[in-house]
Design a protein around this nucleic acid. Structure first.
Length: 463
DNA sequence: GCATGATCATGC
DNA sequence: GCATGATCATGC
């Protein structure tokens, strides 16, 4: 089949909306597919996409650098949704594009990039994923064309371009092995499991690098689902109430904070005409929210890019005394997780927090001989990929301890330069069930204060 | 000063 | 009602 135009592709695609693949193919085709599925131990990633190409569209694009629908210049993406209590549907995963060709990409510019050539216009076919279900019976819920230069806001397109350029610049520096999904905002360089153990050459360094693919982050896809496909408000608040300039997320956020550099908490609140409870443990966090101009913890520009804001307070000497906490974990769930599941291409929660997330540190410093605090700076930070093995070690030790019921032996701050485990509940009675059936106080992973202090200092050195 | 356990205001 | 982020309190 030849589909000459984007409209013809979309028209055909929409005939499977609210239906399943089984609904639109013949019984004998279904039998052939059933036989193939039996051949696999588990559902192979991307298999439904291949079936859609072959049996539904009747195309055979293979692994080419052109869009799947070459004449129409449309790239097909068959991708899963999960049900969600609050948001109805969320993307089950990031949206993955082709592998990054480290040798080739360093000679490209964004406008002429092979990424844009292949992926500028996407046909997104979202189906509802249900673990136990036959892939022939997955229902297609959303089918949309998305032009990455026209169908999203100018700021979002601009950010995606900047993300691509950041990734390419890092490869040009000979740091392909240090790429991390958390480096960028909407477009990320994610690991691809299929052959992630086979390391690749990179053009500007002798160090072998993990194969990675361009991808749109899960949070950005969720934003698209909520605003474009479900047509709902996001439930988040934008830091822009009016028309904004064409700028990156980082530039936009930094511009908000730069106004208050060196100001005390009182000065900031007076300027903003705000009053806040100084006694609260959330005091500085709330100041940061007010600086951004929001009255909530759900900030659109931060959530879209999977950024977590952390208010940090340094001592007058510059020392950071408090470690940074993550959400409390569930002991019984934690021990079922795999650091990186190659088959499912899924990371454990802690791994995902470190690799895919970016942090916005809003740093205050206590004043000597005064109750006042000063706003020192804001900075974006993401966990360096070189430190992942150490974080993994702490995580694995934790799982061993939990499996063996040795809760008193969970990794302590001195056991690692990077992370540890500590209580994180409402109080000492806030307990949760363990695999052994007993109850233990809720705990979580923490990033060591010293480690974060060094990260803050390193950023200062670079500037 | 630091490690460790415990707590609490906020907002969803 | 509860998860979360950010301390606070205690003891060495």
């Amino acid at each position: 089949m030849i589909y000459p135009t984007k409209e013809s592709v979309l028209e055909k695609a929409q005939t499977v909306l609210h239906k399943t693949l089984r609904n639109v193919i013949s019984g004998s085709e279904a039998n052939v597919i059933e036989k193939q599925i039996e051949g696999y131990k588990s559902k192979r990633k991307g298999f439904l996409g291949e079936l859609i190409e072959k049996y539904f569209f009747g195309i055979n694009p293979g692994n080419i650098s052109e869009p799947d629908f070459t004449a129409a210049a449309v790239e097909l993406k068959t991708t899963p949704l999960k049900k969600h209590a609050k948001y109805r549907f969320v993307s089950k995963e990031r949206l993955v594009f082709s592998m990054i060709d480290y040798d080739k990409v360093v000679n490209e510019t964004w406008d002429s990039s092979s990424f844009l050539k292949k992926n500028r216009t996407l046909l997104l076919m979202f189906y509802l994923w249900i673990e136990s279900q036959n892939i022939l019976d997955y229902e297609f819920k959303f089918i949309h064309l998305l032009d990455l230069l026209k169908d999203i806001s100018g700021e979002d397109s601009y950010q995606i371009q900047k993300d691509w350029e950041y990734i390419v610049a890092k490869i040009k520096r000979g740091e392909a092995h240090l790429l991390s999904e958390g480096d960028t905002y909407y477009l990320g360089a994610c690991t691809k499991a299929a052959n992630s153990r086979i390391l690749r050459d990179q053009p500007k360094s002798r160090v072998l690098a993990k194969p990675r693919a361009f991808s749109l982050k899960q949070q950005y896809i969720n934003y698209l689902i909520q605003t474009k496909f479900l047509g709902k408000k996001t439930g988040t608040e934008s830091i822009f109430k009016k028309q904004r300039r064409l700028e990156t997320v980082e530039e936009a956020v930094m511009a908000k904070f730069s106004v208050f550099l060196g100001k005390t908490d009182k000065e900031i609140l007076t300027t903003l005409g705000q009053k806040l409870n100084r006694k609260s443990k959330s005091y500085k966090r709330l100041i940061a929210n007010r600086i951004l101009g929001v009255g909530t913890d759900s900030v659109e520009e931060l959530e879209k890019a999977n950024i977590t804001m952390k208010a940090i307070t340094l001592e007058p000497s510059g020392t950071l005394t408090e470690s940074i906490s993550f959400p409390a974990f569930d002991y019984r769930d934690l021990i079922t997780q795999v650091w990186y599941d190659e088959e499912k291409e899924e990371m454990s929660d802690f791994h995902l927090q470190l690799e895919a997330k970016k942090f916005l540190f809003v740093i205050f410093q206590k004043k000597k001989d005064s109750k006042d605090i000063v706003f020192l700076k804001a900075m974006f930070w993401n966990f360096p990929i070189k430190d992942l093995p150490e974080a993994r070690r702490v995580w694995e030790k934790s799982i061993d301890c939990i499996n063996e019921g040795r809760y008193e032996d969970l990794p302590k701050i001195k056991d690692s330069p990077i992370a540890h485990v500590r209580p994180h509940g409402a109080d000492s009675q806030d307990k949760i069930r363990t695999p052994q059936g007993s109850y233990e106080v809720k705990r979580c992973f923490w990033l060591n204060a010293k480690y974060i202090q060094q990260a803050i200092k390193n950023e200062g050195d670079q500037a």
